[in-house]
Design a binder for these strands. Structure first.
Lengths: 170, 170
DNA sequence: AACAGAACCGCAGAAGCTTCGGTATCGTGG
DNA sequence: CCACGATACCGAAGCTTCTGCGGTTCTGTT
């Protein structure tokens, strides 16, 4: 993968789907997807390139947007969030234009983990985590049912959530 | 948070929901959730403790299971996965006992990103990413519809997926 | 075969990591 | 009220890693 020009970052010169990745890039991504805190030295050894080369590759992947970020995976239970749920939400037909605003507001709530905009009967899904059932009920009542743009919701409790193979570098 | 005894790791002495976290721990988690590749030195400065203390805290959080891992967030489009979907799956009533096996097999597929076990009409949700619509159709046909344990599926294409506030450290 | 451009490597100064001994704080029991 | 142990914190220092740079190799073109 070519390094970006030395001058000011193009920021978005090419979209991630247009970037050409070779085997070394794939190996780097696979390792970092599994352990983002690995040292550059060990990463370089594992993928079989020099440390300096490896560092340049990782930077290029980061700047081109292929790597969107590095995140610690925190157990929600440790934060007092023992309950997770997936909430499917339908908007009022006339309110579709306000979809972005509705979601932006919801995204700022600490209970909300992920937002999925979907096709079909529902407009988007909210992955949320709360302390207990009454807290979840309150979230749905106060922030969803009260909003006139929202036509309906369907809440499904999550018993368990696991990251699968695709998350660990195909 | 107390460090585990020097001897062999208890591995699971206490569950994440029982761990007591103080403000420093919360600050550490907040920073690491946002940028897992930050250096220990800078992390220590941001949360206002010595590097040595910070390192001990992070290790304790990791070993107690509060931090489940560190992962690079890879744009699926860079891997040739331009299409994401959420698939709701119902099992045959008599096949509920085999739920674990069904999911374990599916989890190994590179297309599968997340598995959510849920309550309600559906038994679990699959968050998947594939190259194109025909690849998604093939996945559903070959791995879901063909399985006799699976009673039905509902596929919803994902237009966009964003991480919300709860992912960035309450 | 000569050349240009890109990618890679090793090196070395700079920066960061991690262990260790010492200190402060807190709670308990004499 | 003080001695004591346990706990957590800090600073320092040796060791490791990081990272920019110049030189080299590789690849594809003319």
């Amino acid at each position: 993968m070519p390094l970006p020009p030395a001058g000011a970052q193009p920021e978005r010169a090419l979209r991630p789907q247009d970037v050409r990745l070779d085997d070394t890039d794939h190996a780097i991504l696979r390792v970092l997807a599994d352990d983002a805190r690995i040292s550059n030295k060990e990463l370089a050894e594992r993928v079989g390139v020099a440390q300096s080369t490896c560092l340049a590759r990782v930077r290029a992947l980061r700047e081109s947007g292929v790597i969107r970020g590095y995140h610690a995976d925190i157990d929600p239970r440790a934060l007092g969030h023992d309950l997770e749920a997936m909430i499917a939400i339908r908007l009022q037909p006339h309110a579709r234009g306000a979809l972005r605003d509705v979601v932006a507001t919801l995204s700022r709530r600490p209970e909300v983990l992920d937002v999925y905009f979907v096709a079909g009967a529902n407009d988007f899904l909210l992955h949320v985590a709360t302390g207990r059932t009454d807290e979840l009920r309150r979230f749905v009542a106060d922030h969803l049912n009260r909003d006139p743009a929202i036509a309906g919701t369907e809440t499904a409790l999550i018993f368990e959530h696991t990251r699968a193979a695709g998350r660990r570098g195909s």
